[in-house]
Amino acid sequence: MSTTQPDWTTTPITADLLRGALELERTEHGVLPHRLPARARAQCADGQLAMAQSQPSGVRLVFRTRATTVELDARPTKRVYPGAPPRPDGVYDLLVDGRMTDRGSVAGGSTLTIDLATGAATHRPGPAGTLRFAGLSDAVKDVEIWLPHNETTELLALRTDAPVEPAPDRGRRVWLHHGSSISHGSDAASPSTTWPALAARRGGVELINLGLAGSALLDPFTARALRDTPADLLSLKIGLNLVNTDLMRLRAFTPAVHGFLDTVREGHPTAPLLVVSPILCPIHEDTPGPSAPDTAALATGRLRFRAAGNPAERASGKLTLGVIRDELARIVAQRAAEDPHLYHLDGRDLYGPADVAELPLPDELHPDAATHRRIGERFAALAFTAEGPFAPAGA
């Protein structure tokens, strides 16, 4: 860790410098951004949810400064999956006046070792490290540091060689999005290149990303978090996690979707609300979950997933992506008769049959960096342009 120089400024990391987090927890040495509030976290002891919501997808430090050098002390939590390929260090993206300028990582940190077969996890504390960006212009500029979307990140200190102040509000609309690991950003190249981040930039909006890997399960506490978060535009990507966790049957799914939408609408009665069904995922189109690690692939050092359900079980109400798409379309059509600001988007319009041959899902569940870019571009074209549900007023 570098030594603070006498002429440097150390700025406390406070909520007015962070965007995209719903809550900031004070720790012994710094702060930890959360994407679900404490009340929601207290209502579920699931380790996957705890990990996902603490990974700061879409969370970024945003400030105005003349600084030419910026240092950030952070303690990341790295994930290790025994038997699977090592995961690269999380990436921090530096944007200056909205333009991608540099990238970096923080070595070291704590380690969370997760058994893919049982889900058992072991946490080992580790040291903090320092991220350094140098050689910036000495002009006044808006700086954004996007935190790793897939690495829990405790923020300890922000140092600069010139004073820092919160960046001014640019008056942009706020887009609040909820979805699964694909929305969270699994297998994207960096935090500012997850598909929601790319779509937000094209749409000229401020993103709050509540994509929660493995945890988009129609939980009431998540609906309340969405309800209570100020936003101008909302989208809900529903389906994949319900299949790959094999959490519920069709009888429970339909009223759960209605209840989730009812709760969100309590806080956002007239905001454009877009319900997005799953992108194409061949292993679960007609085969129910759960998803399971492919042990044969793990034996060769590759991480892949397979559908462990039986297609015949659809008759007993088990969910597949096809079943969910049909039911979501029906629910939205039913509700839209009384809710003119409710919209539906078939996820296959973002990634569908024609894309599979060109850009297959490497592990059978998650898109790679190129596919995130394609999904982000298509979502922006379908949602934010003149004919889309998120079109600016007067467009």
Rank of each mutant, 00 (worst) to 15 (best):
residue 6 P to D: 08
residue 21 A to H: 15
residue 29 H to G: 03
residue 30 G to H: 13
residue 31 V to M: 12
residue 36 L to Y: 09
residue 39 R to Y: 15
residue 41 R to E: 14
residue 48 Q to G: 08
residue 49 L to P: 12
residue 51 M to R: 15
residue 51 M to F: 15
residue 53 Q to P: 06
residue 68 T to M: 11
residue 75 R to G: 02
residue 75 R to L: 13
residue 84 A to F: 14
residue 90 G to R: 13
residue 93 D to T: 12
residue 95 L to A: 07
residue 97 D to V: 05
residue 97 D to E: 09
residue 103 R to K: 14
residue 103 R to M: 13
residue 106 V to P: 06
residue 111 T to E: 14
residue 112 L to V: 11
residue 113 T to F: 01
residue 126 G to C: 10
residue 127 P to L: 06
residue 129 G to W: 06
residue 135 G to M: 12
residue 137 S to N: 02
residue 143 V to P: 04
residue 145 I to F: 07
residue 146 W to I: 07
residue 148 P to S: 08
residue 153 T to S: 15
residue 154 E to S: 13
residue 156 L to I: 13
residue 157 A to H: 00
residue 157 A to V: 01
residue 161 D to R: 12
residue 161 D to C: 09
residue 166 P to H: 09
residue 168 P to C: 11
residue 174 V to Q: 04
residue 175 W to L: 02
residue 176 L to W: 14
residue 185 G to H: 01
residue 189 A to M: 01
residue 190 S to T: 06
residue 193 T to E: 08
residue 193 T to I: 03
residue 206 E to R: 07
residue 208 I to M: 10
residue 215 S to C: 13
residue 216 A to I: 04
residue 218 L to Y: 03
residue 219 D to H: 14
residue 224 R to V: 15
residue 229 T to D: 10
residue 231 A to F: 09
residue 235 S to T: 14
residue 240 L to Y: 02
residue 243 V to M: 08
residue 248 M to P: 05
residue 249 R to K: 12
residue 253 F to V: 14
residue 261 L to P: 00
residue 268 H to P: 12
residue 270 T to H: 12
residue 277 S to N: 01
residue 279 I to F: 06
residue 283 I to C: 11
residue 284 H to D: 01
residue 296 A to M: 01
residue 301 G to D: 01
residue 301 G to S: 00
residue 301 G to Y: 11
residue 305 F to D: 01
residue 314 R to C: 08
residue 324 I to D: 03
residue 325 R to F: 11
residue 334 Q to A: 15
residue 335 R to G: 13
residue 336 A to P: 13
residue 340 P to S: 11
residue 345 L to P: 05
residue 348 R to M: 13
residue 350 L to A: 01
residue 352 G to H: 07
residue 355 D to S: 03
residue 359 L to F: 06
residue 366 H to W: 13
residue 367 P to I: 00
residue 367 P to K: 02
residue 370 A to I: 03
residue 375 I to G: 04
residue 388 G to L: 01
residue 389 P to F: 05
residue 389 P to K: 00
residue 391 A to L: 02
residue 393 A to T: 13
